[in-house]
Design a binder for these strands. Structure first.
Length: 373
RNA sequence: GCUGGGGUGGCGGAGUGGUCAAUCGCAACAGACUGUAAAUCUGUCGCCCGAAAGGGCUGCCCAGGUUCGAAUCCUGGUCCCAGCA
């Protein structure tokens, strides 16, 4: 039986922003919410306890990666993702569609082949051949026992012609139908909108995906190279059409300034590797700037990364210490920086939620963005 | 004291007459990262002018010398290392 629901608790009067709650078998998610990425069934460097400690309500796991290693059947045999990795909160899984885009982007280009049936590709681990289809993506996500599944889609690269974007979008639509047919109704399914940066396609896609009446709607194909202005346009087109009562997830977005744009358009959840990946290369959020903690400037800095932050890292360690850990490549560096960046992101959104509740979202966003660097 | 080896840019270490401002590695500095490959990628890295192309200056322990030309050869000095007394 499906134990998934979405309820809007409050709507902003001045924008499309809204407060809501997503209920799943593994708990609730207060929205808007940032969804960290835990690609390989781990939010890199953190224990589940720490993931929760920083304020994460749900995170993202990649079906493609699980299929490559350790293999879906192993996770399934171990009882699904929750028991496998000892996380009892909600989990959302990707369809595997994005990895096609991601793999095709660089030197693996020749290793990926898209057909009507699905996608044939070679593992980035060992070069072995694999095939992903909407049907197997659904079967995999079910085997992983994640709470929210995403329909198998074709992430359109930036810069393609209108013609190619249409073909890609239509393929995504056909795959969405197949995904829905193959999907086990006990879990939640999000259809995925494509259409590149073209108004007619984005609107058509939004209408089509909405018509499938999936539990929620994901917007894909954004932040793939287009400008921020184009991204905003896409959100405008799509969000003006999506049904209000369905939860909306923006796939793969989340630089700090994007947060306000997304929420302003009524996006409820969004995932991004940005906070965690930046953390691992020493870029940490500090107020409205992102600082490179590895710079010599911080070698003797006794202050916390962000004096206003309430995270474990900021309450316990100086910039100088974290600077040192990064310089000598100590493992703790990655963990402390990740704890901070995630906490920072979650806390920022907690403040946004409060602002929406108080009808001061626009003001809050404007003020925050004012001297954002 | 004798014998042998050696002193090159922040460090390690190539180069043994011109193509050398000097391979390469590290460090340093700058930049990148949006449905994740953390330990990665790119650029700079003697000094000065220039956005760049390029130009000028100084330069391979010190002082002389040979040569059209020396980090590279010779002489002296100095310091370091190894073996033997």
């Amino acid at each position: 039986m499906k134990s998934f629901s979405f309820q809007i608790l409050y709507k902003s009067r001045s924008s499309r922003a809204r407060l809501g709650v997503i209920r799943t078998a593994h708990g609730e998610i207060q929205t808007p919410a940032f969804i960290p990425v835990g690609t390989q069934a781990t939010v890199k460097s953190l224990t589940p306890e720490e993931i929760r400690m920083v304020g994460t309500q749900m995170f993202f796991v990649n079906t493609y990666h699980m299929a490559m290693r350790p293999g879906i059947e192993i996770v399934q045999a171990l009882g699904g993702l929750h028991t496998f990795m000892s996380w009892d909160g909600p989990i959302i899984t990707d369809s595997g569609g994005f990895q096609v885009f991601s793999l095709a982007k660089d030197e693996h280009a020749t290793l990926v082949k898209i057909t009507e049936e699905g996608v044939a590709f070679r593992s980035h681990w060992d070069g072995s051949y694999h095939m992903f289809t909407p049907e197997c993506s659904m079967a995999y996500q079910q085997a992983l026992v994640s709470d929210i599944h995403i329909a198998f889609d074709d992430c359109t690269p930036y810069g393609v012609s209108h013609d190619d974007a249409r073909k890609s979008m239509e393929r995504t639509h056909r795959w969405a139908i197949r995904s829905k047919e193959a999907h086990n109704g006990d879990f939640a399914l999000y259809g995925s909108v494509q259409g590149s940066v073209f108004e007619d396609l984005r609107k058509e896609s939004a209408k089509f995906i909405a018509s499938l009446d999936t539990d929620g709607i994901a917007i894909g194909g954004m932040a793939v190279g287009e400008s921020k202005e184009e991204m905003k346009q896409v959100l405008d087109w799509v969000c003006s059409i999506l049904p209000e009562e369905k939860p909306r997830h923006a796939l793969g977005i989340g630089e700090l300034d994007d947060v306000f744009v997304l929420i302003d358009h009524g996006i409820d959840t969004f995932d991004c590797v940005q906070p965690t990946r930046l953390a691992r290369v020493g870029y940490v959020y500090s107020g409205k700037q992102t600082i490179d903690i590895q710079k010599s400037l911080y070698a003797r800095d006794p202050n916390p990364i962000d004096p206003a932050c309430d995270c474990y890292t900021c309450k316990t360690f100086s910039r100088a210490y974290i600077h040192h850990l990064f310089r000598v490549r100590e493992l703790l560096a990655y963990r402390l920086a990740t704890i901070h960046n995630l906490r920072f992101m979650h806390r920022l959104i907690e403040h946004v939620r409060t602002a929406i509740q108080q009808d001061s979202f626009e003001e809050f966003a404007h003020k925050w963005m004012q001297d954002y660097i």
